Amino acid sequence: MRIAIVTDAWYPQRNGVVRVLGTLHDRLVARGHEVLVVSPDQFFTVPMPTYSEIRLALFAKARVGRMLDAFAPEAVHIPTEGPLGKVARAWCLRRGHPFTTAYHTKFPEYVHARTRLPLPLLRTWIRRFHAPSQAVLAPSPSVFRELTAEGYGNVVEWSHGVDVDTFRPGPKDFFAALPRPIFLYVGRVTVDKNLPAYLALDLPGSKVVVGDGPSRADYMKRFPAVTFHIADGGDTELAACYNAADAFVFPSRTDTFGLVMLEALACGVPVAAFPVTGPTDVLGDSGAGVLDEDLRAAALAALEIPPERCRAHACGFSWETVTDQFLGFLAPLDAAADREPARRRRAGAA
């Protein structure tokens, strides 16, 4: 099948959405599907206000249309609500093509945290964006329930997976100079991640943050006792960072899932988090972590959890299941005639 994925989140961005989409792309290609990724790195971009690491594509309408026409997709997936997502959505609607979307990020809460725009208005805007979608892929049962309660009539549950071959137990020596126990956070360093709730905790040993983002410099000044690190060595270095920790602390209250928790668990590192959407779906009743409104108590209690229990729980999140579900949710374009002009153009060009 020819599958077009039009996304505003792609490499070289570093976040959970990119990791999910990148792995999904690789799994689809490995199964023999032809996948076109339309992403910001192919266009003129500008830095996102207040978050310069994310680039927003501008003046993309005509070129996106040409790319999709030439590719002649049999299914279109739009996983983000940004500029490219809006262009792809309009392209599908103009041609009467079905498409699917995804709710990877609590975008209204994210924008509200950075701009203080009214949350109800933002939620209405995002709901309208997804309204024509054949299926809105929700990455967890909690998000599925939330979106259903908000009036989404087209939402479906979609699993997430973790690469248990890359993220596996290993040596705990990466931060060898730091006193133990080592408490770790991995992810974007942004205001919506609620990091001060972790950074301000009175914990024994050391606190470490691995990641980058617009709030990093501010937090480094405010919390000088915390070790900040950027893993530039790819997944190998990232796995070494996870393995060095004794507990993984996830302070976010707004994540739709939190892939980093699964990666930590796959390395045998227990999780401490608030009992909210994301952590409740990742941990369930596994006993591989501790959920508590008292994040300090959760972090200390997590130290008692055996690594084997964490690893076993993470191994239950299969990428094969994730890929199977994604293919099942896709909305194939039924109008083969609509694809004929593009096929003729490609044949003529050849």
Rank of each mutant, 00 (worst) to 15 (best):
residue 57 A to T: 04
residue 70 A to Q: 13
residue 69 D to L: 11
residue 160 H to S: 13
residue 74 E to V: 01
residue 186 V to W: 00
residue 6 V to D: 04
residue 286 S to E: 03
residue 86 K to Y: 10
residue 315 C to Q: 14
residue 272 A to K: 09
residue 82 G to E: 06
residue 185 Y to I: 06
residue 33 H to W: 10
residue 331 A to H: 12
residue 274 F to N: 05
residue 342 A to E: 08
residue 141 P to Y: 03
residue 347 A to Y: 00
residue 338 D to R: 14
residue 163 D to H: 07
residue 273 A to R: 00
residue 184 L to F: 01
residue 181 P to R: 04
residue 340 E to Q: 09
residue 10 W to F: 12
residue 195 L to N: 10
residue 201 L to Y: 06
residue 49 P to K: 09
residue 285 D to S: 13
residue 319 W to N: 11
residue 86 K to V: 15
residue 170 G to Q: 08
residue 159 S to N: 08
residue 218 D to C: 00
residue 57 A to E: 03
residue 165 D to A: 15
residue 342 A to W: 08
residue 242 Y to L: 08
residue 21 L to G: 07
residue 190 T to F: 00
residue 67 M to F: 01
residue 299 A to L: 06
residue 262 L to G: 07
residue 189 V to W: 01
residue 27 R to P: 06
residue 338 D to W: 07
residue 64 V to L: 11
residue 265 L to M: 09
residue 20 V to Y: 15
residue 113 A to L: 07
residue 303 L to T: 12
residue 129 F to L: 05
residue 331 A to G: 14
residue 154 N to L: 03
residue 82 G to K: 00
residue 157 E to V: 05
residue 112 H to D: 11
residue 134 Q to N: 13
residue 165 D to P: 02
residue 161 G to A: 10
residue 262 L to W: 03
residue 6 V to C: 06
residue 259 L to C: 08
residue 172 K to S: 15
residue 269 V to S: 11
residue 165 D to F: 08
residue 301 A to M: 03
residue 173 D to S: 15
residue 191 V to C: 02
residue 273 A to M: 01
residue 189 V to T: 05
residue 139 P to T: 07
residue 347 A to G: 00
residue 251 P to N: 11
residue 177 A to E: 15
residue 206 S to A: 12
residue 275 P to R: 07
residue 240 A to C: 06
residue 182 I to A: 01
residue 170 G to R: 10
residue 62 A to I: 10
residue 240 A to I: 07
residue 319 W to K: 11
residue 187 G to C: 10
residue 78 I to N: 00
residue 76 V to W: 07
residue 224 P to H: 01
residue 132 P to L: 01
residue 40 P to C: 06
residue 165 D to H: 13
residue 315 C to T: 05
residue 86 K to F: 11
residue 325 Q to E: 15
residue 300 L to S: 10
residue 86 K to R: 15
residue 137 L to S: 13
residue 126 I to W: 03
